[in-house]
Simulated assay, not measured.
Amino acid sequence: MSRAALRWRALGPLRAVRDGRDTTPTAPKVRQVLALLLARRNTVVPLTVITEELWSGRAPRSALTTVQTYAYQLRRALQDGEEPADPADGPLVTHPHGYLLRVEPDEYDAEEFTALTGAARTALACDDLTAAETLTGRALDLWEGPLFADVAHGPLLRGYALRMGELHLQAQEMRITAGLRLGRHRELVGDLKELACAHPLHEWFQGTLIIALQRCGRRSEALDVYQQLRVALRDELGLDPSPGLQRLRQHVLTDKVSTADLDLLPG
């Protein structure tokens, strides 16, 4: 089987697609093994690491044998239920103390997402706003939901999912930064309202919504956003908005808001 025919999807539901056909295993533990091997792709994942992910320190006595069974089932699923003539030819490679999943960079959506986000960060640092906006847009188009959304997460997958979730937030921030600096504040208001609603204590999203609203001539709405943030921070955390947000509020009151105010926001 050509490894190039495989496509791995982790940004949302887990999927393994071969020549347009879904070859994702259905058994929950086998899916969890596949997710872990994708997270640690192209490196040997020791059996002890796999057992820790599957059972979180409460592995049964038969754990090693059970993992080997899961690996056998995974290999068959990825081969469309067929036994490979030579197991070394498939994507799943057996090593004396673990397993390795061979994945090319252009086969895995999470790796593509990471590369696009990194390129966007470089473009933004070079003040290439159009490229940054395009690259983050391409990255965010790949995101269909939380990482491995339909797979149980043990300690290792939880950490990987948290890291990718942070990268997703950074991609959104870069897209918004580029868009605001390109003067697309009207187009961004809807997205920013959704993000501000989903992250009510996230001062950066709240602050960029304030900037976008003010630049659209919607000063009262911008002040309402600030007030709602102030109340939420005080009620839930006993804190006031950051000094940068307080200065932004003053700029709203004096009609001096500009994209330079992005530098006032925390983060």
Score class of each variant (00 low, 15 high):
residue 9 R to G: 11
residue 12 G to H: 07
residue 14 L to Y: 11
residue 16 A to S: 14
residue 17 V to A: 12
residue 28 P to G: 13
residue 29 K to V: 07
residue 34 L to F: 15
residue 38 L to A: 08
residue 41 R to L: 01
residue 42 N to G: 14
residue 43 T to D: 15
residue 43 T to H: 14
residue 48 T to S: 11
residue 53 E to T: 03
residue 53 E to N: 06
residue 54 L to V: 00
residue 56 S to D: 05
residue 57 G to D: 02
residue 59 A to E: 05
residue 59 A to W: 01
residue 62 S to P: 00
residue 67 V to H: 04
residue 69 T to Q: 04
residue 69 T to I: 08
residue 72 Y to D: 03
residue 76 R to F: 10
residue 77 A to C: 04
residue 79 Q to I: 00
residue 81 G to E: 00
residue 84 P to T: 02
residue 85 A to E: 10
residue 86 D to E: 11
residue 88 A to C: 07
residue 89 D to S: 13
residue 92 L to G: 09
residue 103 V to L: 13
residue 106 D to N: 10
residue 106 D to E: 12
residue 106 D to S: 08
residue 112 E to I: 07
residue 112 E to H: 13
residue 114 T to V: 10
residue 115 A to P: 01
residue 118 G to L: 01
residue 120 A to P: 14
residue 120 A to F: 06
residue 126 C to W: 14
residue 126 C to A: 15
residue 130 T to V: 14
residue 131 A to F: 03
residue 132 A to M: 13
residue 132 A to S: 15
residue 134 T to Y: 07
residue 134 T to D: 13
residue 139 A to H: 02
residue 145 G to E: 04
residue 146 P to D: 03
residue 149 A to S: 08
residue 149 A to G: 03
residue 152 A to M: 02
residue 155 P to D: 02
residue 164 M to H: 13
residue 165 G to L: 01
residue 172 Q to Y: 06
residue 172 Q to S: 08
residue 176 I to K: 05
residue 177 T to L: 08
residue 183 G to M: 03
residue 187 E to T: 04
residue 192 L to W: 02
residue 193 K to T: 10
residue 195 L to Y: 10
residue 195 L to E: 13
residue 207 G to M: 05
residue 213 L to E: 11
residue 213 L to D: 08
residue 215 R to G: 06
residue 218 R to T: 12
residue 219 R to M: 10
residue 222 A to C: 15
residue 223 L to Y: 11
residue 226 Y to D: 02
residue 228 Q to E: 15
residue 229 L to Y: 06
residue 244 G to E: 00
residue 252 V to Q: 00
residue 252 V to I: 03
residue 258 S to P: 01
